[in-house]
Nucleic acid binder design. Structure first.
Lengths: 200, 200, 200, 200
DNA sequence: TATGAATGAGATTTCATTCAT
DNA sequence: CATGAATGAAATCTCATTCAT
């Protein structure tokens, strides 16, 4: 997850960038395993194989790593989606593919996603980062629709679809769907339907 | 706000209940103002006008008050929705009314809602409470649709709509919509559309 | 010194004011024994017989206790000087008495005085407190001179005398005078002379 | 500032000396800007353009650089005063010139002077350095007075004048005088008076 | 000689929780 | 029932100092 690299750690005490990446990676894992609020900076440092103080050479704050983790997370998501979008495929199969990819991505980061929401509600910077990512989503989606020859939908419409899509993915990732007796297969159907509403 | 059942009882026991209610109410306000994770139990007690130790006479945990706050919150929501549902009105106007009511409710509890999500992802009890409430939502919704003579939709379909609906309301409550240049008016349109998809 | 009270500590876990005073007293002693910059809040708490966290119930900062200690210190000094001033004595003996009293006071607080200077240079609040005390000194001195029938001297003159006086006292308190082979007796002579320059 | 002896030597040794000097200079600037206790050795190294470890190649301690800075500072002061003393001028103008020069010097090093006092009170080595410098002051002053034909004053008298003089200069450098509504011009008058008391 | 990433040691601070009253 | 002073335990953060290169 998030690069791998953990192999042979502690090797040369070199390379600030490597250390930083290792810390981000470790933070991502810890956040996602125990939740942001149950993870302290000591844990992160230790998980990456460093002393507590080392954390503060690279980040001022737990908040700051979180932002970095989020940046990486977004990049990853776009990389995955980018692949899908460039892959030539019929418009027909697109929604299904997108749904599957997004669902997988969310399932990989359940706690992280949950905390993101809580943090964004409190921390303006996290919110700003999230909004930035959202704008990009909207723009790409809109452009995609143009290409597909669909009638250009309102911003509100696109946003609404993106939010719905995301929330439904989260419900699967968090186990809500399953607990409510809704199978992943049927969720996928709903996801496709949400998208198709847009693609027309 | 969060006014609590004032069915009075004996003289003495009332005191205890009153205190407890005051603490719950104070907790709700603090959680919603500063966020669950930035609120400590001493603060809650102080906000309710009690000493720190008093908090622990009534709850074992911060988690426990949260659960109580959530219970009250749910009750409130259902009370509001219940009013709407019993009020005789044409099916036509129903989606619009529901959307407006839900939106108002969410706007009143932005931080609380955000933390709820984060907590549910970590804490089984919170998740359980949330699932219980969700089941009820699904059931009521399903029944409502029957009454309306709509074709009975799948559980997945109902869940998907509820999640979407909720998430879009949150986006307004958290200021996401506004920051993205999407007006509340157009969000309401989307909310109605989401519901109408269901009501047929 | 500074109240005494340390007797029987830990008694009743009562009385916030008592605790606060004990902390101030302990802080004063520690500051004066090891210096402000070599004293940490844990030490202060421990010296007063409390746990580290207790310190923070009463002060936000090491800086804050310092300010309190300073306030107490100033009060003490004025109490001593006040006694002298009210005691009826010939103008002749006044300078000698003042010199002796001040010297004793300074000798009791050598490190504290040294740190006060360093802190005032950095921290506006400490400087402000010091200036306030200085203004009072100047005013009292000026009034005293009027009463003594001396020609009213300029503010600059009074300030200059006060500073000189103080610095010479410090030199004894810090052991500078002794190291330079200047006896306390001859320093006292100089202190009297400095004052007599003013009293005419 | 604090320019250091640039008597060059061999090619190689120069580098080491240069680095050392750069560190001393940087330390002086940092100490005077942020105060000794708010300056860490990494900062000093960085300010001089070196890595943290380099600092420890040249000094064992923060204390040690401070001593070095002090040595340079004293040298500077004497250089300035030496110029004055050798410059042929009437005894009349001497006190005024000395006062002006000293005042300027102090104004250039406010924080450094304040910390010097605090450190001397705690650290025997700093005290020793200060005493050494003080002895020199006393000796030069005494000699000067002989030359001027004044009656040879007691050591106590000379010390008292030096301390007063210094403290009044500091009061200007630290902004005390100004805050108390005492102009620099009137302070200068007092400084001259203090000296004239000695020169008779 | 210089580096700079890394850290041990410890200071600062917070907070849920208790206990004597 | 209520208190509120007190704290154990732990998280956050700093900094002088080292070590492999």
């Amino acid at each position: 997850m998030l690069r791998v690299a953990n192999t042979q750690a502690r090797q040369r005490p070199r390379d600030s960038v490597r250390t930083r990446d290792a810390l981000i990676e470790a933070a991502a894992a810890e956040f996602n395993r125990h939740g942001y609020f149950n993870t302290d900076t000591n844990r992160i440092a230790a998980a990456a194989g460093y002393a507590p103080a080392s954390f503060y050479k690279h980040f001022t704050d737990k908040r700051e790593v979180f932002l970095e983790v989020y940046a990486v997370w977004v990049e990853r998501e776009w990389a995955e989606i980018g692949e899908l979008l460039t892959a030539r495929m019929g418009r027909r199969r697109m929604p299904g593919r997108l749904a599957k990819a997004a669902l997988e991505h969310h399932k990989r980061w359940p706690l992280f996603r949950a905390d993101l929401t809580a943090l964004a509600a409190t921390d303006p910077q996290v919110m700003a980062a999230r909004l930035k990512s959202r704008r990009r989503q909207i723009d790409v989606m809109t452009e995609l629709l143009c290409h597909a020859g669909a009638a250009s939908p309102s911003r509100a419409r696109v946003l609404s679809v993106l939010l719905s899509f995301e929330r439904i993915c989260d419900a699967v990732a968090w186990g809500e769907a399953e607990s409510l007796g809704v199978s992943e297969r049927s969720v996928l159907r709903e996801l496709r339907r949400v998208l198709r509403d847009l693609f027309g």
